[in-house]
Design a protein around this nucleic acid. Sequence first.
DNA 1: GAATCCGTAATGGTAATACCAATTTGAACA
DNA 2: TGTTCAAATTGGTATTACCATTACGGATTC
Lengths: 264, 264
Amino acid sequence: MQQNGKTNLGVSPLKVIESNGSGQTTEEVIARISDLIKGAQLKPGDRLPAERDLARQLGVSRPSLRAGLRALASMGVLKSRQGAGTFVAGGPPTLDSEPLRLLAALHGFSFNHMFETRSILEVGAAGLAAQNATGEQLATLAEEIAEMYAALSDPQEYLVHDIRFHRAIAAASGNPTLATLVEMVSAVLYERRRETIDRAHDFKESLELHQQLYRAIRSRQPEEARAAMTEHILRAQQAFALEEREEQSTNQIPEKREDATVGV
Amino acid sequence: MQQNGKTNLGVSPLKVIESNGSGQTTEEVIARISDLIKGAQLKPGDRLPAERDLARQLGVSRPSLRAGLRALASMGVLKSRQGAGTFVAGGPPTLDSEPLRLLAALHGFSFNHMFETRSILEVGAAGLAAQNATGEQLATLAEEIAEMYAALSDPQEYLVHDIRFHRAIAAASGNPTLATLVEMVSAVLYERRRETIDRAHDFKESLELHQQLYRAIRSRQPEEARAAMTEHILRAQQAFALEEREEQSTNQIPEKREDATVGV
DNA sequence: GAATCCGTAATGGTAATACCAATTTGAACA
DNA sequence: TGTTCAAATTGGTATTACCATTACGGATTC
């Protein structure tokens, strides 16, 4: 917002949070900041007043204010940098995937369910991308495929461009809400994937499917794009399961692995 | 976990968080608790040691510990009750929808995009429900439809059972990850919906579609279920847009509204 | 003897204060 | 003009004290 010390955020000094008799001081802070965001008075990249000032403006102590700020920060809407200040999150909209990760751990979500969800989201995104992708977005997709060709012998590098390709499709759907969810779910799976990717053996089939998917999007054929994405994720799921089995029996001699594909 | 004061959580008193030279004391706390959850040492409903004790066990101050706990609480994995203690979240797995709400406000996500995302998720859920729904889940669906019939003249009450019906479908998909996302996205839309629902006029068509959807699920026809859900949400989106337009011009005389349906 | 009531202890919530660490900023200097 | 360094700003942590709510247990009462 501003840099001077008299930042006010439009909060009247009189409108101090009163009588925390109900005890929800922190909740009040969260609500106040949230309202500023919802009311578009705080935009991405804006800087909040210093904690000491803001605390005084809201009529709460600094610890209470910090509690509220931390809650919003853990939701991903605020970012604090020591020495610099507290800022409204900028850049592309993202939802932190850590909550989903913990929820999965708590309730024992299976990876199959996770893949199923990812499939639903990404198949939808692929269909929309075939309808809405701009020329520039199509170019980005093509570039990532080229990079994948170049990285055929480097699993980790291949994975990076694979991820970017999928992210580009989500973006090309033209639906930021959908893209955000795709990113959140995929992030959980990618983390695990990065650990087992080195066991993958043949990327050619994976790359083939990527190509097929790209052509469908480029030629504006939603149904073909959906079908390709469905097939692609199914293979990825199978490859993932296979590699995980191998890892669990890591000391045994792998006999046949000719049908192992990467997918991702 | 336990109620006595000697709770240890398996954390060696020696394994104190050392040399916060890097300054990330709170991060350490979050990581430690997260690991306990991921390692299944903390299960839903478990109670954590008192803050003062836990702070001593981890070798951090109480404010720092609280900062970590609050971050996890705002992610929805912990719940603190004054006077009682801090507990691992129990009940059905849910992701707080507030982060999505704020993200939408920050980046100006449109309701149409939100509906589109909801459609993708719920259509997928409906298809899976047709495959996986148990007898009991089918019964729940039927009951909610009956309740909707009974509430035909009470918009708010109708909406409640409408929500439950959709929630039941998500549950019947057998995929908790998917159900969680459905809930998160829908919650954002429902909140706004509750404000405009009273402007809805005719629930019959909506109810008809619900019936159709239920029959498709009951008779194990995924494609029919998907089609019905697609149609249903499309109508809901249109009704929503219509009611919103009415609200914006709330002081004008509404001329014709015969084609307004509710959907939800 | 059983149910109710109330007080005490335990626990999370808030506050005030001091100090640490990282960043920024700008003035001094080469 | 470019570089360096030091002071001010700002978020991070710690200590301490006290408040508000809840849970538990003993005393009272019926």
